[in-house]
Design a binder for these strands. Structure first.
Lengths: 206, 206
DNA sequence: TGCTTGTTCGGATTCAATTCGGAAACAGAT
DNA sequence: ATCTGTTTCCGAATTGAATCCGAACAAGCA
């Protein structure tokens, strides 16, 4: 029950378990994945799961953490580049990168993300929101005229939360009513319009 | 297994089961609610659950449908009034009504909504999105100058999906960074800014 | 090699979901 | 009120998944 892996071998096992969990969650959702399935995919015995994880839920939590870490690792390096672009281009670049990330490995992360909006899991997503909030803040630093926008924290809150959910939902759509490109444009336009309207500066987008 | 209730008595039982399910979901989430708990809250025997529902999941689906129906029933009657207001006031009125609805019965519906964003459940939320899309469309009909906005479907998609998620998330926040009033204002401002920026008409908000 | 510690395994146990057969409540007719 | 077929309710028994546990196996070390 919940040991720390000390040997190389067991570290690999833990990793295999987490990846197996991600795969199984993507395939069938957390509710339908059984401990035996995870063990089978990881290529280990059922009992071994409980050597490193308190219970099945702990496995899901670890898988979620892996997802969150990878997502943050995708966002962070983009920041220096994004803060130098105009709003529309920055939003576009961010969203397309995000999409590619979610589509990797046969949509592994996209399929997992669909389950990540339920109660408990949202808690653990905080690092993603913080990374995006960080991007938002740094962007403002590089475009000081934007600081005249009112209600910046609330704007960021709406934009980031609503944005993540909308993108995941859209990418999961069977037959989307609009293309991802259209959605991307609207995302950029929405924010840029607000900035330009409030700040009254067209240079806000340069 | 999955009979139709014929007598008054059994209709009450079905109702009690659905309400018990909502209560239990609100308390502990769907994953942690057991069939026995639902039966206990409903004041019936375990076996009775299976007289009217195929399985536990069917009970959750029915509970979700109840939630969706009630939500739509809250939105529909607002439409005639909202379409005559300016954007900011309409958004404000809608959001405050939505909040009151979610806060009813000791946040019963808010707590349920927190679990409603996972994969399968989003499917069944379609009626809510349709009702809001309907409101959006009718609003445009009453303010034809807004039809000059580009990408209207994508705007509606982002605004509705992002909006619902953001509101539920914010109301669930332990210590919100910003007040609901601020958020409401940003919601209105965001949409109004886009409209005014694109249409170039300040009368868009009258 | 012999000893200690770390790791894996899968059968045994526990607990929740679902079934089933019969008891209780009901509606309608006599 | 009594009888009769139907509807509703129940909870012990079954089933299967989650979890535990102790024996077997591998690694590190003297």
């Amino acid at each position: 029950m919940a040991r720390k892996p000390k040997q190389q071998r067991s570290k690999a096992t833990v990793d295999a378990i987490i990846e197996a969990a991600l795969i199984s969650i993507a395939r069938q959702g957390p509710g339908a994945t059984t401990a035996r399935q995870v063990a089978d995919i990881a290529g280990i015995g059922v009992g071994s799961l409980y050597e490193y994880f308190e219970d099945k839920d702990a496995i899901f939590t670890a898988a979620g953490a892996r997802f969150v870490d990878d997502t943050v690792a995708m966002i962070k390096p983009l920041i220096p580049e994004l803060v130098r672009m105009n709003i529309r281009d920055a939003v576009s670049k961010l969203l397309f990168t995000f999409r590619d990330f979610l589509e990797e490995n046969n949509q592994l992360y996209l399929k997992c993300a669909r389950h990540a909006f339920s109660q408990d899991m949202v808690m653990h997503q905080a690092p993603i929101n913080r990374a995006l909030m960080d991007l938002f803040t740094q962007y403002l630093m590089h475009h000081p005229e934007l600081l005249r926008m009112p209600n910046i924290p609330a704007v960021a809150y709406f934009y980031i939360n609503g944005g993540i959910f909308t993108v995941v939902r859209h990418l999961s759509e069977e037959k989307p009513t609009q293309s991802f490109e259209e959605l991307t444009m609207v995302f950029g336009d929405f924010l840029a319009s607000y900035a330009e309207h409030k700040v009254g500066a067209s240079n806000a987008t340069q």
